[in-house]
Design a protein around this nucleic acid. Structure first.
Length: 415
DNA sequence: TCTGGGGTCCTTACCCGG
DNA sequence: TCTGCCGGGTAAGGACCC
């Protein structure tokens, strides 16, 4: 599998940090090294975000309820997440990737595609490229490892990076890709989750090779347009290009409550804090939202949404919150609810929206929110509290928005 | 022992205008 | 004038990803 890239239609690398959040914690705190570490909430209703490799033999993995993880691995050290720190390191990693190619598509904090087509002359063949990418991650982070997959398409590169973990490097030449995928389970296809997997099993498909051998028209008849797509992936065909700068389609903030509630007033207060958070992020990224969506999750896990257009588009918390309150009235279900969420969608760039901020009141509010942005970015999000929060006697810890990053314990109890 | 938070994309239903 | 069809836009929900 170690050959030059000459003749490949494209050279796509996928780099995936190994147990990223847990690895950062172990790097920053030497006392955690060699120990099972779970990043996630210490209490409350939450799940494991990342389990270190020392914890994985205990069958603990991400997305597992923390209570269950603790039972499986009682000696694990539980560390609350520090997203700002992960963001900081992620940025260094992405900058390092940028030295290989202008086409870097960040999928998340710990994962990216790099289009290396045409770069063999500078960096060597796929294996040399992979080694250099891994080396650059170690140097940029101070020792963290990434697993890298290289092939001619995004999908195969992605599967390859997960093939040997941690600290792996897997090269799949395009002419071997189809056979390489064939024995893998259908769940390894991008877009096949538990539901589609069950459907495929019911139709008699268990491996990617079986999908590849089936008439795509037949797959389409049974699975809709997804059928043709899955057939293409099974043939290692994936037309998607590495996209350098994708613009966001929505920005949201949601929160699972420490206890289910039917209290509309309480829900409205969560919506206000979400609106503040979203407004801040919209302004920081230079977007305005032409749509707002409210989400409630019932105690029995049904998700209900209501959405509305915003005219004109806005990036102000006050307006997002007003729209959210109007939408809240559209929910006729009594509850109780376990989650409250707000999202801004149909994002337009600030400069693309008409300047309608000519009303004095509107201009004043926008100035106020921008001033708060400046203060919170300098002194942290606890620096200001709304009168409502103060009146309710909240502790600083749970006041405007920091609690969205909080680990969920003791959420919202008044002091 | 219960089940996160950030998103994207797709499907379906429905309304409306031509 | 009524009906059918079609396409676009919007809303709601669902599946999936990390």
């Amino acid at each position: 599998m170690n050959q030059t890239a000459t003749g490949w239609p494209r050279v796509v690398a996928h780099a995936d940090m190994d147990a990223f959040y847990a690895a950062v914690e172990q790097m920053d705190d030497p006392s955690l090294r060699g120990k099972p570490v779970l990043v996630g909430p210490r209490s409350g209703r939450g799940v494991v975000l990342t389990a270190s490799y020392e914890a994985r033999p205990y069958k603990v993995g991400s997305a597992m309820p923390m209570a269950r993880a603790r039972r499986l691995c009682p000696q694990a050290v539980i560390v609350p997440p520090r997203f700002e720190r992960y963001q900081e390191i992620s940025q260094k990693v992405m900058e390092a990737f940028g030295t290989f190619s202008p086409d870097v598509e960040a999928i998340s904090l710990d994962e990216a595609f790099i289009d290396m087509s045409g770069a063999e002359a500078i960096f060597g063949g796929p294996r040399a490229i992979g080694e250099k990418i891994k080396q650059s991650v170690r140097e940029a982070t101070g020792g963290l490892t990434a697993s890298v997959g290289i092939s001619a398409t995004k999908y195969v590169a992605k599967v390859a990076s997960g093939f040997r973990k941690p600290d792996g490097l897997t090269i799949v030449p395009p002419d071997e890709a189809r056979d390489w995928l064939a024995p893998m389970p259908v769940s390894a296809l991008w877009g096949v989750g538990p539901k589609t997997e069950a459907r495929l099993h019911a139709l008699g498909f268990t491996t990617i090779g079986q999908i590849a051998c089936t008439d795509p028209a037949q797959l389409e008849a049974r699975l809709g347009s997804a059928g043709r797509h899955l057939h293409a992936l099974a043939h290692a065909t994936d037309p998607r290009r590495v996209e350098g700068h994708r613009r966001s389609r929505s920005i949201g903030s949601e929160r699972t409550l420490s206890q289910d509630t039917s209290d509309r007033g309480e829900i409205a207060r969560y919506l206000r804090r979400s609106a503040e958070e979203i407004g801040r992020r919209l302004r920081r990224k230079g977007y305005r939202a032409a749509g707002v969506r409210v989400k409630l999750k019932t105690h029995d896990f049904r998700i209900l949404t209501r959405q509305a257009v915003m005219k004109p588009p806005s990036d102000e918390a006050k307006e997002l919150h007003a729209a959210a309150l109007a939408l809240l009235k559209e929910f006729h279900e009594a509850g109780p609810f376990r989650l409250v969420g707000l999202a801004a969608y149909d994002l337009v760039r600030e400069e693309e929206t008409p300047q309608l901020d000519l009303f004095a009141g509107k201009a004043r509010n926008r100035k106020l929110e921008t001033a708060i942005d400046a203060l919170t970015s300098r002194f942290g999000r606890d620096v200001l509290r709304s009168g409502d929060d103060l009146a309710r006697g909240r502790t600083a810890r749970v006041t405007p928005n920091l609690d969205f990053l909080d680990d969920g314990d003791g959420d919202d109890e008044a002091t």
